[in-house]
Amino acid sequence: MSSTASASPEKHLPLTPAVFAILLALVDGEKHGYAIMQEARQHTTMGPGTLYGSIDRLLASGLVRETGISEDERRRYYALTALGKRVIMAETQRLERAIQLARRKGIKASEAKA
């Protein structure tokens, strides 16, 4: 684990679906690993290996920080750093731009199931 934190959010883009889901889950506040996984699974597939591998990389790149351990010491809690917040905002903007472009080209979400 090297501390390769980059202060520019754009350097971390684009995010993988798993990393985006993890950061999004932490927008509401600190959570432990399983709670992150439960929320992330609403929009992407994620097992423990993917979750903790991603968390390890996010800790190393300074997007997430560890905030504490539960009383029984079984659960560690994680929260977004200031850089992490800027990165997910930048990624959301990037996705919004992509969606706007898709809309302009006539792509409609309601037609996806047809």
Binding site: G33, M37, G47, P48, Y52, G53, D56, R74, R75
Partner: peptide, 17 residues
């Protein structure tokens, strides 16, 4: 190093899942 750091949490996540 990874295992020592995350294995207990990964096991718990697997069990709950």
């Amino acid at each position: 190093k990874f295992r020592r750091r995350y294995a207990p949490e990964m096991l718990e996540a697997a069990q709950l899942s």
